Simulated assay, not measured.
Amino acid sequence: MIQFDCHAHVYETVAAIDGARYVPARNAPLAAWLAHQESCGLKGGAIVQVSFLGCDNSEMCAALAKLDRSRFAGVGVVPLDVDDAQLDHLVGAGMRGVRWNLVRGAAIPEIEADLTQRFLSKLRDRDLHLELHLEGPRLAPILPVLAEQGVNLVIDHFGLPSDPDPKSDPFIRSVSALADPSALYVKFAAHYRTPFDITPHANDLISLLSEDRIVWGSDWPHTQHEQSTSYSEVWARCEGWSNLSDAAAVRSLYAIGLSE
C-alpha cells in the first residue's frame, strides 16, 4: 500500500534564480499539497527542492518548519563544495537527501574526482541519500559506479526511460546488470514526462529491485504539465501498483515510520 508522497514541490512565492530553465506561472502552496494528500488518504511526504530555486532551500525549510517531522522530510539541492555547517543546518531542518538535477545537458559530476568524493563522504556521514534526475541514456553509463559509493541512490521518474521496450532501454538494462543493486531505489513519479506507456518499465523495475525499493511521488504541481494532469489523475495511476508497500523504503530513505 502506497502511503507516502515522496516527490512534491512546495513554494509560496515564485522568485527564480538567474538562468532558470523554467519558471512556473503560479505558486504551489503547502496548504494545497496537504489538502491533496488528505483527499488521497496519504500519511506524509517529501518536499523536493524545485530547480528554479537553485541552491536556495529556504522555501523547503520554511515548509518543513510547519510540518510534523515524524511524517514529512525534505530533499534539497546544494553545491558539491557545500560546507559542513550548511549541510548540518539543512539536516536539522528535516532534509534527508540531496538532489542532482542533471537533465537537459547539465554537467555530470566526475564521480572519482576529489571534490565529488568529499561531497559523497559528507552524505555518508549524515546518512543522506543522493537523488538523481537524469535521462536514462546518460544515467545508464554512470549507474554502476554510483551504486558503489556507499550512499542510497534514488532515481527520479522511472529513470526517464528512452525506449518503449524495457528490454532495450538503457536504464533498465543498466539496472539488470548491476552486481549489487542494494543501494538503488526508484521513484514511480511523473509518468507523463515520458512519451510512451511506462507500465512495462515499472513492472520490470519491480521484478529487478523488489517492491521495498520503490517509492511513489505525485510530482505536484506537475511543472510544465499543469494543464494536462492533476493530483487525482497521477494518484489513480497507483492502482496499477496497489500491491506495493512503501513503508520499508520510506523508513530507510526519509527516517519516517509508516505502518506495514
Rank of each mutant, 00 (worst) to 15 (best):
K43W: 00
K43L: 05
A35V: 03
G44Q: 03
S51R: 02
V78W: 06
N57C: 01
G76T: 14
S70R: 10
G74I: 11
I47G: 03
V75C: 15
A35D: 12
A31W: 04
G45H: 04
I47Y: 01
V50L: 03
I47A: 02
S70H: 08
D68F: 06
Q49D: 04
L42T: 09
A62V: 03
A65C: 09
F52C: 08
G74K: 15
M60D: 02
Q37G: 13
V75R: 06
Q49I: 07
F52A: 07
G54V: 08
G41D: 07
E38C: 09
H36Q: 12
G45Q: 06
V78R: 13
C61R: 14
A65T: 13
L53I: 05
D68I: 08
V75M: 09
A32C: 12
G54N: 06
M60T: 14
A65W: 02
E59R: 08
A46S: 12
C40A: 15
G45W: 01
S58Y: 01
N57P: 02
V77H: 10
S51L: 00
G41E: 04
A46V: 13
A32L: 14
V78I: 14
I47M: 03
G41M: 04
L53Q: 14
V75I: 10
G44V: 00
S70G: 13
L42D: 00
R69K: 15
G54F: 04
G76R: 11
E59L: 07
E59H: 13
S51M: 03
D56W: 05
L80W: 09
A46Y: 01
C40I: 02
R71H: 12
F52M: 14
K43D: 01
L80A: 11
G54E: 00
L67S: 09
R69S: 13
D56E: 12
D68W: 04
A63Y: 03
V50G: 05
L64H: 04
L67N: 06
P79W: 04
G44C: 01
H36G: 05
L64I: 11
P79F: 04
F72A: 09
F52T: 07
V75F: 05
S70D: 10
Q49C: 04
N57Y: 01
S39Q: 12
E38T: 14
P79L: 06
D68N: 14
G45S: 09
E38K: 15
A73P: 12
C61G: 07
V48A: 03
E38F: 00
A46H: 02
F72W: 13
Q49V: 07
S70L: 06
V50Y: 00
